[in-house]
Design a protein around this nucleic acid. Structure first.
Lengths: 222, 222
DNA sequence: ATAAAAATTTAGACAAATCTAAAAATATGT
DNA sequence: ACATATTTTTAGATTTGTCTAAATTTTTAT
């Protein structure tokens, strides 16, 4: 494990996320936009990261993470998502309030800290946004998509129950005005791994993947 | 609340701690030693901090924190000590393992996070080293020193019981080989606010102030 | 195929935080 | 009091990460 600055870690993470889009290599300009900075700054940074062998870089050809770079990205993402679970489960933050804080916490370096945090949180497989949390070895659990695929856009008139009936979860549903047993309509799935828009009665709202994962689909009552 | 770099916060904290020694002003060289850097670097930094009105500075006269600087120091110290409690109480670290991690966590900025962490930990008054934790307003609880003063060096043959009988605490004692009801001898009190060396039978060991505070002194059994 | 457009890199500058070496100010000893 | 020693500051350089503006390379369109 390399010594890396926060900024370097953020770039590596940014490249990782862009790579999930399926592209073979990531363009300087795409990365500049993602990192909210100028292409010239990106060029400087990727030269440094290339020297550290965290990515492959040939002038004008864009970049691709090396094994080492990917492993580093996964470590940072693991930390980010574990901290998000901590903030929601242990400190009672809402799932849409935790990103900026996790953005800071993800750079804390101590493998022991991460492992113990993981244990404290009962080795969660998904973060509060529904994104999978890589394990110590960088492996993801693939979510059973049954539930959500039954809730594809247009499938109106389905009805929800809950899998997790903790008072915390129920309070959460209440806060987001989701009532059990009422018919819902899926408006759109913004991105499978992010959030979805649903319609309940005449209210439209956005729910996270995690919430969705803890709801199950029931046939519409007669 | 000012936007400050980690480095600036560390200097402010360093000055605060040196000021606790009772000096009216802190010398450049003393601060350089504390911060493990060169006097010329300190001069540069204190100029910056002086411009931000975090400290009073006149050339060749040393520095003294302003109200604003003191408040900032206390906020960082509060965060540091709360995170130490978290690491020990929630993640099971030993009290002597947490300093470096807390040194990183103390710079995370989110007032809400700190307040919720404080609540999660049940508003602790002291950290695992026995140092007091400033509250939201920067005020310290003064520890009742009765217990420890009864355990001054030389007072051999006293005997301990516990105030906190949680299984966590008892496991902690066990780990540190402290058995209840057995006579102990105090060897030395390294610094009242840090730790003490005790002798139990023929084992010498170092215990933290926090542990000491949860033990009480009983007369030696006949 | 080649000119125009778009993307990328280079060059030079800046701010933060550090360093070394030299200069200036303060403190000390007799 | 005055020379010497110590402390502190300044001057100039370095690294990281950023910027703007100019130069270069690649892509696109006719």
């Amino acid at each position: 494990m390399e010594i890396m600055t926060n900024s370097e870690e953020n770039y590596i993470k940014g490249i990782y996320h862009l790579s999930q889009g399926g592209q073979h290599s990531i363009a300087t300009s795409a990365l500049a936009e993602k990192m909210d900075t100028k292409p010239s700054s990106v060029t400087d940074m990727i030269k440094r990261l290339s020297e550290k062998e965290l990515l492959h870089y040939k002038k004008y050809q864009g970049v691709r993470l090396t094994e080492k770079g990917t492993a580093q990205a996964l470590r940072v993402i693991r930390k980010h998502r574990l901290w998000e679970v901590f903030l929601v489960d242990k400190l009672g933050f809402a799932w849409d309030e935790v990103h900026d804080i996790a953005e800071q916490l993800e750079h804390i370096e101590s493998e022991m800290l991460v492992d113990r945090l993981d244990a404290l949180l009962n080795f969660p497989d998904f973060d509060p946004h529904g994104d999978p949390i890589p394990d110590k070895n960088g492996r993801f659990k693939t979510r059973e998509k049954k539930l959500l695929s039954a809730m594809l856009p247009g499938s109106s008139g389905i009805c929800v129950g809950v899998k997790d009936s903790s008072s915390q979860f129920l309070k959460f549903l209440d806060k987001h005005q989701i009532e059990l047993g009422k018919p819902i309509e899926i408006l759109e799935l913004e991105s499978f791994d992010r959030s979805m828009h649903i319609k309940i009665g005449d209210r439209k709202l956005q729910i996270s993947h995690q919430i969705a994962a803890n709801l199950y689909v029931k046939p519409k009552p007669e």
